[in-house]
Amino acid sequence: MKRIFVSLVAILLLTSCGNDQLILPNSVGAFGKVMVVTSNSNWEGDIGNEIRQSFGKLQVGLPQPEKTLSVSQVAANGFSSMMRNSRNIFIVEVSDKETMSVVNDKYSRPQTVVYITAKDKEGLLAMIKKHSNEIIDTFRESDINYLQRLFAKRKLDDSKYKTLQNLDISLTIPKDFRTVDDTGDFLWLRHHLKSGIAKGTGSNNILVYSLPLEDESTIADGIIAMRDAIGEKYIPGAKEGMYMITEEAYTPFTIETKVKDNKAFETRGKWEVKNDFMAGPFLNYAIVDKKNNRLLVIEGFTYAPSIDKRNFVMELEAIAKSVQIN
């Protein structure tokens, strides 16, 4: 009898010491979407307007207007067990403290829940304005991590690519991608968008190459010339004299960032084929790899006429940010 009691206690202790995650349901919901839990009066007033305006800012570098994040709302009394399994949840509620906090895997996994609390509506509005960029970044990072986990489950064997081997790097690339070119210095992979997370026509493309690292202060200003030179050399159009360039009518947007703790420059803009009508968005990461004295470049570009492209570009972002420099 004593032995049975001890066993039961041990099982209870194990269950209470972190095994809850083993029984959490899988989260649901497409990436790029956030469920907002707040009262209807909040949602229909200034608080809802601020959330829609902040989350609904247009994503930079896309040909058509698309929101950074899409939002939907449910009141707290309608926040059912099924809705609690949503992947991205933003809870806005009155409390006796002003706080902004993030909880992972609370009701399901993977899941990100962001809380904003304050003593009244005015306080909630102020907190949302203060933390909006941080909140948006949190949900976008959640989406990137989610995509990388999905891609890892159906990852290409990247050891077969000469260019990746010569550069001594690895990437988490899903098996949908096929080789267009792999010279040893330049890699071009393409996924025809007929199935997968975001369905449509056209293609998603990944480019990988490196250049000698010279003056770091001139990198940002030289990214367009760099990618145009690569386009002319490696990415031809349908006829002679046609090749990929940066669209001249749209000024790309470049920011300094980090990729796997390395200084990097993220550039979003539009590409086009010179003397042709093909065009679309691109996302370029120029990574400062001081250890190997080089500028490592990973770029994604999308061709998907007549349909939204935000999610395609986010998939490319997840692949680029998965890079491991050996």
Rank of each mutant, 00 (worst) to 15 (best):
L14T: 08
I11W: 14
I287C: 09
S80A: 03
R154D: 13
D20L: 15
G200Q: 01
D46Q: 08
A249C: 07
T302F: 10
F265A: 10
D105H: 05
Y209S: 06
T163W: 00
V94I: 06
K233R: 12
L295K: 01
I287N: 11
E248M: 06
I173F: 14
V113H: 02
D137H: 01
K309Y: 14
D289S: 03
P305R: 03
F139V: 00
D143M: 00
S16V: 02
G184F: 12
F186Y: 12
K270E: 15
M226A: 15
L124C: 04
R268F: 06
K291N: 10
T246V: 11
L24P: 14
S16P: 03
Q324T: 11
D182S: 07
E266M: 08
M127Q: 09
I224V: 15
G222R: 14
M127L: 07
E214C: 13
E232P: 02
A318I: 02
I235V: 12
L8K: 08
A225F: 10
L12C: 03
L69F: 11
L316Y: 09
K233I: 01
K67M: 05
V180L: 09
E266I: 07
Y250N: 10
Q53G: 08
D182E: 07
I11A: 12
S86H: 11
H192V: 15
T257L: 10
D181S: 15
R109I: 11
T15Y: 14
I23H: 02
K2Y: 13
A76C: 05
F90E: 02
E214F: 12
Q53F: 14
K175A: 08
F253C: 11
V36L: 03
V71T: 13
D120G: 03
E256Y: 04
F265M: 09
H192S: 13
L193P: 00
L296S: 08
P212F: 02
R3F: 13
G78W: 03
Y115N: 11
T112N: 02
F31S: 07
I245F: 09
G184V: 13
Q148H: 00
S86M: 12
L69M: 06
A304I: 01
K199D: 07
I245D: 13
E240V: 10
F277L: 15
K33S: 14
K274M: 15
D20A: 15
L156T: 02
E317Y: 02
I223C: 01
Y234F: 14
K162P: 04
T179K: 08
G184D: 12
A126C: 00
N326W: 05
K67D: 06
E214Y: 11
L150F: 03
E98R: 14
A238Y: 12
G200I: 05
N293T: 06
G61Q: 09
M82Y: 07
A126P: 08
Q64W: 08
E122D: 11
I136R: 01
I298R: 04
D308S: 13
K97C: 04
L167F: 07
K2M: 08
N42P: 08
M35K: 13
L14E: 03
N26K: 10
S39M: 03
M242E: 15
S195C: 01
N145F: 04
K162T: 10
N311R: 14
S95C: 06
V273M: 13
P252C: 08
G78H: 09
V94A: 11
I136A: 05
C17E: 05
D20F: 15
I23G: 00
N284R: 07
R268S: 13
I91T: 06
L207C: 11
L150Y: 03
E299P: 09
R3P: 04
R52A: 07
M314D: 06
K291V: 14
